[in-house]
Design a protein around this nucleic acid. Structure first.
Length: 420
DNA sequence: TCTGGGGTCCTAGGACCC
DNA sequence: TCTGGGGTCCTAGGACCC
């Protein structure tokens, strides 16, 4: 049996832990740049606020119902996530952390009074020790566990646990699950399936597998098998090494000048390089891209990117910066309102595999130590304490984060003070 | 005024090779 | 007039996830 445990309305729940007056009120948390609502409390969902709705489209609703609004506070959410995961791991050893707010548990060798009791105890412990409400779904495969979780949220709100092991229980679940709510079915596939009168997960499972293979590739076929109780999705206890690392942002304001974009791209490069060093990997290819805002129909549009192959794979910020700046110089054109830029690193390999040609000098130990030191200072004293000149200081590209709560758990200056 | 960011996997089609 | 076949590798684009 596999369990999927996930935190309810995670970002909103984190805000509520440190601000109990938010309980019972509609609350939303916004994406970067305060652009869209990406987490909603139940009350906000009831008002009809959909996932990823742009804020400017719901300003009236927010005012009218006094919806509480927060910018994303990833420092806080990341730390709260660690706490939740630690508690789960103290109960179950074979786990796969799937996202910031979800974790799969392998219950096949678990010794406990009963699986249902375990689920109930997990839920209670997390609630008690972190204040975060969670839901648990248990079933024979990952896809079914996801479905059981959704089922619990919809029909078993009170206990927050659903256990679907028997054929009858699984069939009941399949029958009430809409096809668009299946894990792996997005907008396009939902449209296709509805067009063919396939409305529920039950319909889907009973569709001709040939047809599914042809119209939805092996991905669709795998989903069906999973729903028939045959596990097809790998268990990944330790996350596989990443194949790509990307840092990109929309700017807080539209930018027109090259030096402004250079600063942003330099900062993105530094961030990518740091991620590489953290994982002890190096990149062979760097892509830099810039684009205008596709929603501004009145603006001339421009999208451009360039791939640069590094002579020697690297994770050195200075080295990567020289490529990034060269690429940007090649694609930048005057006369556009730039809205977003980014750096994408690919062909990533472990740093110990660096292959030098006979003319290349290995990175000096001096450079290595410099990077190590920069990472350490920035870890201890906050991001960007030490940076390269090209990252600049005025940050014209800065994000909007108008409604940011505090780093309640990670910054000593922002700990909550309580009067007793 | 205002529409996120960071990933994965799969497939089709072109380039290239023998 | 007649113009192969089979394989690999790479890339772009599309689908999905949280």
């Amino acid at each position: 049996m596999i369990a999927l445990l996930d935190c309810n309305n995670f970002y909103v729940s984190c805000e509520r832990v440190f601000n109990p007056s938010l309980r019972g009120k509609p609350v939303i948390v916004l994406s970067n740049n305060d652009g869209c609502a990406i987490a909603r409390s139940d009350e906000a969902k009831e008002l009809g606020i959909k996932m990823a709705t742009p804020v400017f489209m719901i300003v009236d609703l927010i005012k009218k119902h006094n919806v509480q609004v927060f910018s994303s506070n990833y420092e806080l959410y990341g730390d709260m996530s660690d706490r939740v995961m630690r508690i789960i791991k103290s109960f179950v050893q074979v786990v796969e952390v799937y996202s910031i707010d979800e974790i799969f548990l392998d219950l096949s060798n678990i010794k406990y009074q009963s699986i249902e009791q375990l689920a109930i105890d997990l839920r209670q412990s997390v609630q008690q020790q972190t204040g975060i409400p969670v839901t648990v779904g248990v079933a024979p495969t990952k896809t079914l566990a996801k479905m059981a979780n959704r089922f619990a949220k919809k029909f078993k709100k009170k206990i927050g646990v659903h256990y679907a092991a028997t054929k009858e229980a699984i069939n009941e679940m399949l029958t009430v699950t809409e096809v668009g709510d299946i894990w792996g079915i997005g907008h396009q596939y939902e449209k296709l399936l509805l067009l063919h009168n396939i409305k529920t997960a039950f319909d889907f499972v009973n569709t001709n597998e040939e047809w599914i293979r042809k119209n939805m590739s092996v991905v669709g076929h795998r989903m069906v098998k999973e729903m028939k109780g045959i596990p097809c999705i790998k268990w990944e206890q330790t996350p596989p090494p990443r194949k790509a690392i990307c840092t990109s942002r929309s700017f807080g304001n539209l930018l027109t000048k090259k030096h402004q974009i250079e600063e942003a791209v330099a900062a993105f490069t530094a961030s990518c390089a740091q991620k590489l060093r953290k994982e002890n990997t190096v990149a062979n290819t760097l892509q830099v891209f810039v684009q205008t805002n596709p929603f501004r129909h009145e603006d001339k549009q421009y999208f451009a990117s360039q791939d640069l192959h590094l002579r020697v794979p690297s994770n050195n910020t200075k080295e990567l910066l020289s490529y990034a700046m060269r690429g940007l110089n090649n694609i930048f054109q005057n006369g556009f309102n730039y809205h977003k830029a980014g750096i994408l690193l690919t062909d990533i390999v472990p740093s110990k595999f660096i292959q030098l040609s006979i003319f290349d000098k290995p990175e000096s130990s001096q450079q290595k130590n410099l990077m190590k030191t920069i990472d350490k200072v920035n870890r201890n004293f906050g991001r960007d304490t030490v940076r390269f000149g090209s990252q600049g200081f005025d940050k014209q590209w800065h994000l909007r984060r108008q409604y940011l709560s505090k780093a309640f758990t990670t910054n000593p200056n922002e700990f909550l003070t309580i009067k007793i």
